[in-house]
Simulated scan of single mutants.
Amino acid sequence: MPLPTVILPGYLESAIAYHQLQQSLQQMGFPTLTVPLRRRDWIVTLGGRPVTPIVRLLDRTVKQVLQQSNASQINLIGHSAGGWISRIYLGDKPYLGRGELQASLWQAHSLVATLMTLGTPHMSQERWTRWNLDFVNNNYPGAFYQNVRYVCVAGKTIFGEKRRGSWLAYSSYQLTCGKGNTWGDGITPIEAAHLEGAENIVIEGVKHSPRSPGVWYGSPEALKVWVKYLV
């Protein structure tokens, strides 16, 4: 029987944007729940502040799913920033965000069979996100936990260029990996979306956000490519 699955939304996104993906997974036999985030829940993390409130909500949702399903493990899907925030959740090192007086620790890697990241920027040159991402990559580089299956999905859709229609992608790629002339999903470049040691996948034609027009990572066309990696 498929494991229960939890979806962690991307930065500044709410759970409602993932309703269709959640339904699709449920129809495929995966009992699925999205972390019940509202867009305003992200406000406290702006400006590089700690993501502790988001991880607490993730932990609460995971514990709820495990109790309801009587399972010992889940699949965890993190979209965009939700992917690297999930890596904090897996970890054994105390997480002390800037300005926090008490460290938090979740040690959840034993609860997660597969970590699926969709369009996640696992690196950044942007000063507001560097502290958190440096914490992740310095403490848990690559596919860090051998008991967890890491699957990292990237989109090859827009080549970043300094011209109309590609300028946003160029700027976002440059801010993420240091160069704009590369392929990605319009927000996250391929090289930032992959991790060393993970099962790294590229899907052509997918855009970054569930609010993007056309196909995104959770659309049926893309879902059929990566769902087979879930336990």
Score class of each variant (00 low, 15 high):
Gln23Cys: 10
Leu25Trp: 00
Gln26Gly: 14
Gln27Arg: 15
Met28Trp: 00
Phe30Arg: 14
Phe30His: 12
Phe30Glu: 00
Pro31Gln: 14
Thr32Cys: 11
Thr32Ser: 08
Leu33Tyr: 09
Thr34Arg: 01
Thr34Ala: 06
Pro36Arg: 09
Arg38Gln: 15
Arg39Gly: 02
Arg40Lys: 14
Asp41Arg: 04
Asp41Trp: 00
Ile43Pro: 03
Thr45Cys: 06
Leu46Met: 13
Leu46Thr: 14
Leu46Arg: 14
Gly47Phe: 06
Gly47Ile: 05
Pro50Arg: 11
Pro50Glu: 07
Pro50Lys: 07
Val51Gln: 05
Ile54Asn: 01
Arg56Glu: 10
Arg56Phe: 09
Leu58Ala: 02
Arg60Glu: 14
Thr61Glu: 04
Leu66Asp: 03
Leu66Arg: 12
Ser69Val: 04
Asn70Tyr: 08
Ser72His: 15
Ile74Cys: 13
Ile74Asn: 08
Asn75Ser: 06
Asn75Lys: 02
Leu76Lys: 06
His79Met: 11
Ala81Pro: 00
Ala81Phe: 05
Ala81Trp: 03
Ser86Pro: 02
Ile88Pro: 00
Leu90Glu: 08
Lys93Tyr: 10
Leu96Thr: 08
Gly97Pro: 02
Arg98Asp: 14
Gly99Thr: 02
Gly99Pro: 00
Gly99Arg: 08
Glu100Val: 14
Gln102Ala: 13
Gln102Lys: 15
Ala103Thr: 10
Ser104His: 15
Ser110His: 15
Val112Asn: 07
Thr114Ala: 08
Leu115Val: 10
Met116Trp: 08
Gly119His: 04
Thr120Phe: 06
Met123Pro: 00
Gln125Lys: 11
Gln125Ser: 04
Gln125Cys: 12
Arg127Ser: 12
Arg127Pro: 04
Arg127Ala: 10
Trp128Tyr: 12
Asp134Arg: 11
Asp134Phe: 13
Val136Arg: 00
Asn137Ala: 09
Asn137Val: 09
Asn139Phe: 03
Pro141Cys: 12
Ala143Pro: 01
Ala143Thr: 04
Tyr145Leu: 04
Tyr145Trp: 11
Gln146Val: 10
Asn147Trp: 08
